[in-house]
Amino acid sequence: MDALSEFVFAPPPSLFLNVVTVVIPVVVAMLGLSEARGRHLQYSKFWNANSAPKSLEKFKLPSWLGMLLAYTPALLAGVLSLWFFPNEDRRTLLLKSALTLHFLKRDLEVLFVHKYSSKMVFDTAIIISSSYFSSTALMIYTQHLSKALPEPSIDLKNIGLALFLIGIIGNFYHHFLLSKTRKQGETGYRIPQGGLFNTVICPHYLFEIIEYFGFAFISQTFFSLSFAFGTAFYLAGRSSATKRWYASKFEDFPNHIKALLPFVF
């Protein structure tokens, strides 16, 4: 704990926050394990994967509407925190601004970049929305409580900001490349190319993980750090399932392409 105190704030005096710091990332990581085992949250190419007939009868949304439902509450949490508490210390302001920009970009991509061909189960939209909203609100709340605690002796704010900027730019670039694999009106899938798609099938997930560790380094709280690890486990499972899906659908899928980390995994 003494070594960790150089990098992160001490846990805030809140039993609730200390419990969710453990529980929420574990739940997110378990969802990643389910993805890797073939039990998918039902959106994108996996919206009807391994579904029993009853599950196919569930209420489904157009994917663009489902993704807006998933992202917008977290965006509002960030906007409202900036609106009602504008005069914050630099660390808290950086964190809130980065989270708000992250979800604003997500909504704008849904509206102007992504091309959708499938549905999204309403239950899935609610699960994702709840996860994003709760994690965003709790990161901000934890930061507010941590202001009363001694600062970590090693300041990682600027490194965190750099990671966030690398992550959000890399994530957008690869989302843009993904959108170019499908012309307007097309519904099929192609193997994406360009950028890191030449080495991994989910570089957009890799850069999203970098973003979340950017949040964690800006924040330097246990909750932000543990949620970043939980997100990494979830996206690792999702990317592993995505690679298997592409390999099963395309006979010419290159053997050298990894799931998430170039040349490694």
Rank of each mutant, 00 (worst) to 15 (best):
Thr72His: 10
Met139Val: 07
Leu69Pro: 00
Thr124Met: 03
Ile154Ser: 00
Ala77Asn: 11
Leu165Val: 10
Ile126Pro: 05
Phe112Pro: 04
Asn50Thr: 09
Lys115Ser: 13
Ala49Gln: 07
Ser153Thr: 15
Ile166Gly: 11
Leu82Arg: 11
Tyr71Ser: 06
Ser146Asn: 09
Lys105Val: 10
Leu94Asp: 03
Ala162Phe: 02
Tyr116Gly: 03
Leu82Ile: 08
Gln143His: 08
Thr142Glu: 15
Val121Tyr: 01
Gly66Asp: 04
Ala125Trp: 01
Thr92Ser: 15
Leu61His: 11
Leu108Tyr: 12
Asp155Met: 01
Lys105Met: 12
Phe84Ala: 06
His102Met: 05
Ser118Met: 02
Leu61Ile: 05
Arg91Leu: 09
Asp123Lys: 04
Pro73Ala: 09
Tyr132Trp: 06
Ser131Trp: 00
Arg91Thr: 05
Ser131Arg: 04
Leu161Glu: 00
Gly160Thr: 02
Phe59Thr: 03
Thr100Ser: 15
Gly167His: 02
Phe85Asp: 14
Val79Ala: 14
Thr72Pro: 03
Ala148His: 09
Val121Cys: 03
Val110Met: 12
Met67Leu: 13
Phe133Ser: 14
Trp47Glu: 13
Asp155Leu: 00
Ala162Arg: 00
Ser134Gly: 13
Leu145Gly: 09
Ser146Arg: 03
Tyr141Lys: 15
Leu165Asp: 03
Arg106Tyr: 14
Leu104Ile: 11
Ser131Tyr: 13
Asn48Arg: 12
Tyr132Ala: 05
Lys58Arg: 05
Leu82Glu: 03
Met67Asn: 09
Val110Cys: 15
Phe164Tyr: 07
Thr100His: 12
Ser55Gln: 07
Tyr141Gly: 06
Thr100Met: 12
Ser97Gly: 13
Leu94Asn: 08
Thr100Phe: 07
Pro62Asn: 07
Ala52Trp: 04
Leu99Asn: 06
Met67Gln: 10
Val121Ile: 04
Ile128Glu: 02
Leu101Trp: 09
Tyr132Thr: 06
Leu108His: 11
Glu109His: 14
Tyr71Trp: 11
Ala137Val: 08
Val79Asp: 07
Tyr141Met: 09
Asn158Glu: 00
Phe133Met: 10
Leu80Met: 15
Ser130Met: 12
Ile126Leu: 04
Leu56Glu: 15
Ala162Ile: 00
Leu75Cys: 14
Thr92Asp: 07
Glu109Arg: 08
Glu88Met: 10
Leu156Pro: 00
Pro150Cys: 11
Gly66Arg: 14
Leu65His: 04
Lys54Met: 10
Tyr132Ser: 06
Pro62Tyr: 02
Leu156Val: 00
His114Pro: 02
Phe59Gly: 01
Phe103Ala: 11
Leu75Phe: 15
Leu138Gln: 12
Ser97Val: 04
Leu95Val: 12
Asp123Gln: 03
Ser118Val: 00
Gly167Ala: 05
Ser129Ala: 13
Phe103Ile: 13
Gly78Ser: 13
Val79Gln: 11
